[in-house]
Amino acid sequence: MHAYANPTRFLGVARPLAPWLFWIGIALILGGSAAGLFLAPADYLQGDSFRILYIHVPTAWLGMGGWTGIALCGVMQIVWRHPLAAVAARAVAVPGALFTALCLATGSIWGRPTWGTWWQWDGRMTSMLVLLFLYLGYIALASASAKSGEQGGVSRVTAIYGIVGAINIPIIKGSVVWWNSLHQAPSIGFSGSSIAPSMLWPLGLTVTGFTLWFMAIVILQMRAILANNRIEARLRRMARG
């Protein structure tokens, strides 16, 4: 793991990887969406409105997965002083917040025709909104620590905030199981799925596609942060003469 703490070595792997992740991700998203819109049959109850699932589920997964990544990076930063972990956590924050917002928006659009309401304060929706607010707080703290010279990473306070905030992730997951909620119980578990196979496979494509695309965005963001570090280091050297 420490071999890749070296930014130069990381860039050597990340630079050729990013365009592959980016374009394969885009292709899977487009293919999966087209399959979801035109090939998957309409739902027996919801009709065509269920198709928003092909966007809603990947965004929910990446919103929650993004924060899990931020928390793991936080542990690596605090315990092992891993410099790239702090850069990675910073790179995840904005796309993670964006996907969480997309998840809330698509859920709301689906809720109106299905439940008969745009928004209700049930456990799942409330905990997901809390995740969006956590992201916004993280982005604010991360940009403050960048200004105070953390070499593109985040301050230790920001890392601790990321670890503490991770407690919301199992709450989101459990909200539909522990409490009576308006949102339905999970359709996909470790042992199977209650989504018919003809409707499930395009979801596999969009989830994989969005995940690869998310990884590409994070790598590009990390490269931009590292490049910025080098510029600043050079400017400091030049200023010293």
Partner: peptide, 20 residues
């Protein structure tokens, strides 16, 4: 106010009447 609660099952119309 009345809200419909959807369950976790998704299936095509041809499969209506079948059970998960």
């Amino acid at each position: 106010e009345i809200l419909a609660k959807h369950d976790e099952n998704y299936m095509p119309r041809e499969l209506e009447g079948m059970k998960y």
